[in-house]
Simulated assay, not measured.
Amino acid sequence: MELLFLGTGAGMPSKQRNTTSIVVNLVEERGTYWLIDCGEATQHQLLYTSLKPRRIEKIFITHMHGDHIYGLPGLLGSRSFLGGTEKLTVYGPRGIEEYIRLSLKLSRTHLTYPLEIIEIEPGVVFEDTEFRVLTERLDHVIPCYGFRIEQNDQPGTLLMEKVRELHVPRGPLLGRLKAGEDIVLEDGRVVKSGDVTSQPKPGFTVTVLGDTRFTESSIALAKEADIVVHEATFDDTGKKMAQDYGHSTFRQAAQVANEAQAKHLIVTHISARFTNENEPSLLAELKESGCPSFIASDFMHYKLLRDGSIESFTTSPK
């Protein structure tokens, strides 16, 4: 699993940061991408990557402020022009369906794929055999949500030496054992899956929080997550403004990660008032997280490795 930040700015685009959008790259897990928020010019940012809009399977919208949704109509239309035929589902707060349907209607945009729009409430908003996505209300100036993406535990790998010792023939029986099913051989012997497979590997958990003041809901969604993405629009000097406008400071994001016992913290939605020169002092405010912490920038990738660590790199075209 990999996160790619297409936009990391707050409010409106700047020369350094586009408005909010994050790709959850699940190509290895399910052959698709998920998108969280779709600020203005998200599809422009995608042009500088190797990602194909037609492979976007789901879009999760945290709230209805423009810097999180103004890129939706253009991206949905372009997905048709670029050969998209697979179903796309958009999840978001009340009003997201009216916004999308009206935008497409008035612009006479025809889609070549089925579009499903789900207006969410707190709880489980998606679940299948691989993933579960939960959401909770946060504390912003309008209804806003955070998302917790949980991957189910992964089956153990076959221990081929033990398989050979038991003379299990190659073919479908191996697949059934790997899937956790006990089998019966032609000679009547029962081979238990647990005897010939390694222990299941825990799935990953990623939490992405929309704009919010410090709130217990953030901590609940972030509990023991492998990665927490938290907005940090202000530093300590702007604590009052953060409270007034429904945002968080860097230190408050670190507090959420710390209390949730998260393994990694990435902050985004950064005010344009901050430049690269401010980064050392901002990173100092993140130290309270108690975990490795990063300040996201446009086109930064964060890949969650099998050992639980993060590999970060940039493909910035700028």
Results as ranks from 00 to 15, higher is better:
residue 74 G to S: 06
residue 75 L to G: 05
residue 76 L to Q: 02
residue 78 S to W: 14
residue 80 S to H: 00
residue 81 F to P: 02
residue 83 G to H: 04
residue 83 G to F: 07
residue 84 G to N: 06
residue 84 G to Y: 03
residue 86 E to F: 01
residue 87 K to C: 12
residue 87 K to V: 09
residue 87 K to M: 14
residue 88 L to W: 08
residue 91 Y to H: 02
residue 92 G to D: 05
residue 92 G to E: 02
residue 92 G to H: 05
residue 92 G to I: 03
residue 92 G to A: 06
residue 93 P to A: 11
residue 94 R to A: 15
residue 95 G to M: 03
residue 96 I to M: 06
residue 96 I to Q: 04
residue 96 I to S: 05
residue 96 I to V: 15
residue 98 E to V: 09
residue 99 Y to V: 11
residue 104 L to Y: 13
residue 105 K to C: 08
residue 105 K to E: 15
residue 106 L to E: 13
residue 108 R to W: 05
residue 108 R to N: 14
residue 109 T to S: 11
residue 109 T to V: 15
residue 109 T to C: 09
residue 111 L to W: 05
residue 111 L to D: 11
residue 112 T to N: 13
residue 112 T to V: 06
residue 114 P to N: 09
residue 114 P to L: 08
residue 117 I to N: 12
residue 120 I to Y: 00
residue 121 E to I: 12
residue 122 P to L: 07
residue 122 P to V: 03
residue 123 G to W: 03
residue 123 G to L: 10
residue 124 V to Q: 11
residue 126 F to Y: 15
residue 126 F to L: 12
residue 127 E to G: 07
residue 129 T to H: 13
residue 129 T to P: 04
residue 130 E to L: 15
residue 131 F to H: 05
residue 131 F to I: 15
residue 131 F to E: 04
residue 133 V to Y: 04
residue 133 V to T: 11
residue 134 L to V: 14
residue 135 T to Y: 09
residue 135 T to C: 14
residue 136 E to M: 15
residue 136 E to S: 13
residue 136 E to I: 12
residue 139 D to S: 14
residue 141 V to W: 06
residue 141 V to D: 01
residue 141 V to E: 00
residue 142 I to F: 03
residue 142 I to Q: 11
residue 142 I to K: 08
residue 143 P to F: 02
residue 143 P to G: 10
residue 144 C to G: 09
residue 147 F to D: 01
residue 147 F to H: 01
residue 147 F to L: 01
residue 147 F to I: 07
residue 148 R to N: 08
residue 149 I to P: 05
residue 150 E to R: 09
residue 151 Q to Y: 10
residue 152 N to E: 11
residue 153 D to H: 11
residue 154 Q to N: 06
residue 156 G to Y: 06
residue 157 T to F: 10
residue 158 L to F: 03
residue 158 L to D: 07
residue 159 L to T: 03
residue 159 L to D: 12
residue 159 L to Y: 01
residue 160 M to W: 14
residue 161 E to Q: 11
residue 161 E to L: 11
residue 162 K to G: 04
residue 162 K to P: 04
residue 164 R to H: 09
residue 166 L to F: 08
residue 167 H to Q: 13
residue 167 H to Y: 04
residue 168 V to D: 03
residue 171 G to R: 05
residue 173 L to I: 02
residue 173 L to H: 00
residue 173 L to D: 02
residue 175 G to H: 13
residue 175 G to M: 12
residue 177 L to N: 03
residue 179 A to T: 11
residue 179 A to L: 08
residue 180 G to V: 06
residue 183 I to K: 02
residue 184 V to N: 03
residue 185 L to G: 00
residue 185 L to S: 00
residue 186 E to W: 01
residue 186 E to I: 01
residue 187 D to Q: 11
residue 188 G to P: 10
residue 188 G to E: 13
residue 189 R to L: 10
residue 190 V to C: 13
residue 190 V to R: 15
residue 194 G to T: 10
residue 195 D to H: 09
residue 195 D to A: 09
residue 196 V to Y: 10
residue 197 T to P: 00
residue 200 P to S: 12
residue 201 K to V: 14
residue 202 P to W: 07
residue 203 G to H: 05
residue 204 F to C: 10
residue 205 T to W: 05
residue 206 V to L: 12
residue 206 V to F: 07
residue 208 V to W: 01
residue 208 V to Q: 08
residue 209 L to S: 06
